[in-house]
Each structure stands twice: as C-alpha cells, then as structure tokens.
Design a protein around this nucleic acid. Structure first.
Lengths: 326, 326
DNA sequence: ATAGATGCAAACCCTTTGCACATTA
DNA sequence: TAATGTGCAAAGGGTTTGCATCTAT
C-alpha cells in the first residue's frame, strides 16, 4: 500500500496537475469518502481547488474505474478506491455509521442464477446489510472510523486460509487414498501427490505466517471472504467416498473430480477480483490444482491402458458395461 | 387487493383526515413511488395538502412499518407499501429504470451467517442487481411501468409451485419406500403417507389451477422465489438413500429427516414474510409436513417397541452398539 | 385548553452547471 | 490557438424546518 507506482491513469483528454493532486489524495485514502470529505482533505493541502473540480474529478474517476460510487442511503454518495480492492459487500451500522466489508462467492453465483432466469444482464450488485454493529450493541461508544484500511490484507489472509484448508483437505484425501490403494503403482501416485500437498501446504503456511508477521493484528480480525460451498469441502467429501471397497481406478476418478472442482472454483472466483495479493493467491492455487488434476488424468489413463493390456492377455470380455437407462 | 379492511393504522398521536387520505392513496398504489409521485397523486384528488405533509406522512409510514423506503441510487428515495408484500430484493434496469422483484431464502440464510460471524445485528438487507433488463437489451423501447403489481400473486404462485414440487418429491419417496418395506405393517404406513401426499398434491394443484384461472398471464411470468436449497431436494436425496439394503426402521428415519427438514424450511421462511397468500401457503404446508413428521415418529417408536418386545423374547444381547470414537 | 398536525415558504444539503478565466497540447 | 480543465457562484433537485394556523381530544 506504499508509494504506489501509479498504474498509468486512464486517459483524460488533457493533463491537469490539480486533478492529479485530487486523485493522489483519494487513492491514498482508504475508506469511504464523500465528495465533501475529499474536498476537505484537498483543501487542507494545496489550496485553490474548487468543490466543483472535486466533484468533476470524482465523476471522472468513477467513469474510468479508479473509484466506485457507493450509496449507503445517507442522502449523499460515497466513493471508494477500486484499485487492488475486490468488489465487496457491506455491513452498515446505522448507529455509528461505520461500514464493514465482506465478500461472498455464494451471493455472486446466486445473482447469476436470478439474473439469467430473467434474461437480465447484471453490471453491478449491491448488497448492504443494515443493522447494529457489535460494538454499538455492547454500548462501546468509541468505534473510531472504518477499519477497512486492511481489506486488501484481510482478503489475502482469507485467500491463504482457504488455500490452506483446501490443501489440508487434499492431503488427507491422498493419505487416505494411499492407505486404500491396492496396486503398488497407484499407491506411489497417491504418495507423490500427498507429498506435493505437504510441500505446498508448508509453502502456504509460511506465506501466511509472513503475512501475519507483517501485520500482527490481522489474525484476530473477522472473516472477509465467505465461501460456503468452498472447495475444501470437495476433498472432504471425496475422502468420505474412499471406503474400503473402492479400487485405485475409482480413487483416481474421485481425486480428479476434486482437483478439477477445486481448480475451477479458485480460477472462477480469482478471476473476478481486482488486481491484488488475494487474487494472485487464488489464481496461483488454481494453477496448482490444475497441475494435480492433469497428473491424475495421466495416471488414470496409464492405469486404464495397463488394465486394457492385461485384459487383452486374458479371455476377452465385454469392453464396457452399458449403463442402465433411467 | 380490493377495498382493504384497514388493519388498524398504527397509532399516531392524533387523528388526521389528511394523513388518512394520503395513506389510503399510497396503500392502493403498487409500485415504487417517490415522495413527489405521491404528492402529485394526492394533489389530483383532494387539494390543499402540502408537500411537507406528504413527506411527514411518508416518514411516519416508514416508522410504523406501513411503508418501506428504498433507494435505487437515483438521488431520491422511493417508497413501497409493505402490507401483504414480502420483503424482497430488486433487479434494477439502469436503462429504462424499471425494477423487478425477487426473493431468495439463500441470500437470507447467507446474510445471517455473515452477520453472526461479526456479531452484527441485521435489521434490513438490501440486495440490488443493477444492469440491463431483457427488453432493453433487445431494444424493445416500450417497457411501460413496473409490472410489480402482481408480486403478491407471483409470490403465491411460486409458493404453490414449491409446495407442489415438494409434495411430488415426497410422493415419490413414499412410493419408493413402499416398494422397499419388508414388514407389512411398515409398508402400510408408507402406503398411507403416499396416499396423503397424493391427496395434498391434488389439493395444491387445484389451488394452483384456480390461481392461474383468476390471473391467466401469471403462468408465463418469470420466477419470483428462488430457493436453491429448497425442501424438495430433501426428499429427492431421501429417495436416493432408499437403496434395497435399507430396512423399514432406516426408511422411517430417513422419512422423518425429510419431513422435519421440509417442515422447518417452510416454517422458517413462511414466518419471515409479510401477511399474504404466499405466507399462508408456506405456513399451511409447514403444518402438514409437521403432521407427517409426527406420524412417522409415532410409527418409528411403535416399530422400535415391537422390535424391543421381540428381542425380549429372544436371547438377550447388547442393547446398543457403542459408536466408534473418531 | 392544549398537544399535535398542517401549509407555506424558506432553509438545507448535496450536486450540477454557466461562464469567464487558466492550462495544456 | 484551440480544446480542455477550473473556480466561483448560482441554480437545481430532493428533503427538512420554523412558524403561524388549524384541529382533534
């Protein structure tokens, strides 16, 4: 969040030092500023910038995507910087007027469903939960300002947590699969993957630790990302399916399904976020899961080939069992 | 939606014919009115009512729950009557400025989850999907006004559809259970329940037919209620669990789980709605499911008792199998 | 009689605009 | 210089408020 290497401001027809100045102030201020808040901030420094210019600049920032306009129903607009911060939803305390951000894949997928049922092309989704925040309920007057300053970090933290949980789940799955595998070659594959999961897990945990070290109070913060149908559940249910009767081929298939689901999940949501650490974590993890998936596919094919070869050496039988209809 | 028997207006400190008049106009107008829209309507009739009074009355209606204030980001508030209309969410076309209503249990349960994770006490949830509506995408300029006039009917329609789907699912479950039941007495229970489901199904379908008859274009309207995790899925998965190996006791248990889940679902969401036909459908259905549940419980207990009695007549064994730890 | 409701117009607040002037390409 | 950006103040729109005047209890 430091000096920010200015990612080439979207083209205005002409340059303007005043606009640059306003944008700079805005970009370095996390939280939800109203036009007047920003005007005040701008006035504190360089003088001679009019209110109208602030309004016009805000408008321009929204058009070019540098800012997002939010309306908390206060009768005036607020603006939030959009760089490096994923789109998100808000919990809004109507008593102390602070807001808390969160993000959810479930809501997004739900919105997709509703919109497509109506042939509606959504551009933006607003989710606001109004109510009373924890502190106001307890009567702790203090409150201070929005603590959304760390949203980018919270996002990274939760992305890592999800990746770690998924990795753990995967590790468990492969450990379990190793135990069940009957064929020594199959066992080796699962052992290898278990090993990989262990390595990745260690990497992710190190990364998590580092993040926490650089930002110690991060750990105690509440959740930002909510993914009810998160990918780690996939492996958990996959592991459940690994009952003693399952053979190597089936185990491979289950593993493939899990890795593929996990890959799709992380990729799909990762690609929706704004450029950020959290996004990177999602996409990197998605790539890893894809690699695992591909490895499993190769092994699966190899196993099938071996079996087919074996079958050729034994009395020929029906090649495939036709699935019962209905 | 007729003459409306006026459900005792929440007490204002003093009566006022003007306020009554404004409220009356508002209540009989479906859709989202701005203060000025309402002022115009009021002015059309009785003259001599000032804009301020309209504002004050709207404020009072919101306070007393007669109206809900909504903000579509137009820079002015809109108001919708809340009687007989469930809280709902909005799809908002930013091109033609119409809005479409929908409702979802998933969002509500999701919001509960997020809020409780933060110790936040929610009072109201705003979900707005902005974008372009079907017609505007196709370039059909017409559009007319909001067609939310029929929301109450759509709500009833979808409630009936859900109830019917659940009933069908239940019927399938009990038919399946009848086939599987080994004990003749158990079979009779399932047959009885299948019969009940058939009867209820017929009732519901008749009700649905009647609704459609009174409002023919209702059938072609898009969905209003979205319940991804709807209760009919319960019975479907219940039926899946009825594999040949399952005995009567297990089947009863599965049935109980389904009926109980279904009951809770319909009751939980039904109780959240405003007074309306749809709400009544939900709650009535919830009651039916509860009855089924209780019948199953009785049968289950009877079966257990019979088995215990039988066991007493045979060499005594361990009464319960201790569950493996972990 | 008295608290509460109303109309009117003025005040408020946030935001946009017109216009003369300053900057930038 | 020609096209844009800017400051100021004024206008705009939605909403609230002060105050004298009604009205219900």
């Amino acid at each position: 969040m430091g000096g920010s290497p200015r990612p080439a401001l979207p083209a205005a027809r002409k340059h303007s030092s005043k606009r640059d100045y306003i944008v700079d102030i805005f970009r370095h201020h996390e939280g939800h500023l109203s036009a007047d808040d920003l005007f005040d901030l701008v006035r504190q420094g360089k003088t001679g910038i009019g209110r109208a210019t602030v309004y016009r600049t805000l408008q321009w920032m929204v058009e070019t995507g540098l800012a997002r306009k939010v309306d908390f129903g206060e009768g005036r607009a607020r603006f939030e910087a959009s760089e490096r911060r994923p789109r998100h939803f808000h919990l809004i305390c109507d008593r102390c007027h602070r807001s808390f951000e969160f993000l959810s894949s479930d809501v997004e997928s739900f919105v997709d469903e509703v919109a497509s049922a109506r042939g509606f092309a959504p551009t933006q989704t607003v989710v606001q939960v109004h109510g009373t925040c924890d502190e106001c309920q307890k009567g702790v007057g203090a409150g201070a300002t929005d603590d959304n300053a760390t949203t980018a970090f919270l996002f990274a933290r939760d992305a890592l947590r999800m990746a770690i949980a998924t990795e753990r789940s995967g590790l468990e799955f492969y450990t379990c699969a190793t135990r069940i595998a009957s064929d020594p070659r199959g066992r080796r594959v699962f052992e290898k993957l278990a090993g990989e999961e262990r390595t990745h897990l260690a990497t992710l945990q190190a990364r998590y630790k580092e993040l926490i070290k650089s930002n110690p109070d991060l750990e105690s913060r509440p959740a930002f990302l909510f993914f009810k149908g998160a990918a780690s559940g996939l492996f958990a249910s996959g592991a459940q399916q690994l009952t003693p009767g399952v053979d190597d081929e089936q185990a491979l298939r289950i593993g493939m399904k899990c890795e593929r689901g996990s890959h799709l999940f992380f990729k799909r949501y990762g690609s929706r976020f704004e450029e950020s650490e959290g996004k990177r974590i999602f996409l990197e993890f998605a790539a890893e899961e894809r690699d695992h998936f591909e490895l499993l596919v190769r092994e699966y094919r190899a196993l099938r080939a071996r079996r087919a070869a074996h079958r050729r050496r034994t009395p020929p039988r029906r090649h495939a069992v036709a699935r019962r209809a209905r």
